[in-house]
Design a protein around this nucleic acid. Structure first.
Length: 275
DNA sequence: CACTCTCCCTGAAAGC
DNA sequence: TGCTTTCAGGGAGAGT
């Protein structure tokens, strides 16, 4: 579930709390999330210090002092919280990482679509989960030239293209619908039919919607709560996602928002504003 | 190669 | 009220 803004919010939240702290031990309460969990996960992180915490695509990367990186993907329902003294272990807490000063990182994931593993930091870019990742949408790598060149040869709907992590990372089902609304593009439009001016608008819209969501601490829905345990506020700003039947928020429009399914995913848009 | 479909899992919400 | 069905934000791997 969590898309780029939610993952970035988690990173921002845990970074200052665990940076320079030492891992005392790691405990797992389950052997498999989306994939089997490495048997020696604990020994790979034990006694190491956290050097940096950052995000790549929808992955949280924790670089350690032994030249290894701990990678966490939240899947659909994953959460990470940092607690003091570990008084409460939640029903779906699958991993606890114990740091010095009684700090504990809990990885909570009801649906168990998450992923956690350790790899040599130097091997990360060649790792199978990382080697095919596309450009970071908030970097200069996502620009008009990149997008227009990308869509030119594509025969799939524009929504699929911008959600495909091979091309652009971090954009998931919510922000894809939102960015397409902001740029006035129908999500079903085929890549090679997207005009130059649409590309300019779409690049701007993707960056805008992701930045706004990060500012508001990610848009959490249902069970996804922020690092502090507080929900994000961007969900109140959603223009189309989850608003089937409600009026388009563009003042001059007011048409009902439509829900369709593209590639087995709910897609929301305004028939009048998005051509 | 490009693209679509299925499936992993639990729980919330809707339907009856 | 309670039981059953539907649906959920990701994405790898199989299938076309």
């Amino acid at each position: 579930m969590p898309e780029l803004p939610e993952v970035q919010t988690v990173v921002n939240g845990i970074k200052s709390k665990i940076k320079n702290h030492k891992v005392l031990k790691l405990k797992k309460y389950i052997n498999k999330l989306r994939y089997p969990i490495q048997k020696d996960l604990s020994s790979k992180v034990k006694d190491c210090k956290v050097i940096t915490v950052f995000r790549r695509a929808k992955y949280i990367i924790i670089n350690l002092s032994n030249n290894k990186s701990l990678i966490i993907h939240l899947g659909m329902s994953g959460r990470v919280i940092i607690v003091k003294n570990n008084k409460k272990i939640y029903k779906h807490t699958h991993i606890c990482i114990f740091f010095d000063q009684n700090l504990v990182l809990q990885f909570i994931d009801p649906r168990r679509f998450g992923n956690i593993f350790v790899t040599e930091t130097s091997l990360l870019k060649n790792n199978k989960f990382f080697r095919d990742l596309g450009v970071e949408p908030l970097s200069g790598q996502l620009n008009f030239k990149y997008l227009s060149n990308l869509v030119q040869s594509k025969k799939s709907p524009i929504k699929n293209i911008i959600m495909n992590q091979k091309y652009i990372v971090g954009v998931g089902n919510i922000y894809a619908s939102e960015a397409l609304f902001l740029s006035g593009i129908n999500p079903s439009n085929i890549g090679n039919s997207i005009t130059k001016s649409d590309c300019i608008k779409l690049v701007k819209a993707i960056k805008f919607v992701l930045r706004e969501a990060i500012k508001l601490g990610g848009s959490s829905i249902n069970d996804h709560t922020m690092i502090s345990g507080k929900m994000g506020y961007f969900q109140n700003k959603l223009k189309v996602y989850g608003r089937e039947g409600l009026k388009c928020r563009k003042r001059t429009c007011q048409s009902p928002i439509i829900r369709i399914v593209i590639a087995q995913r709910s897609t929301f848009y305004c028939v009048r504003c998005q051509k």
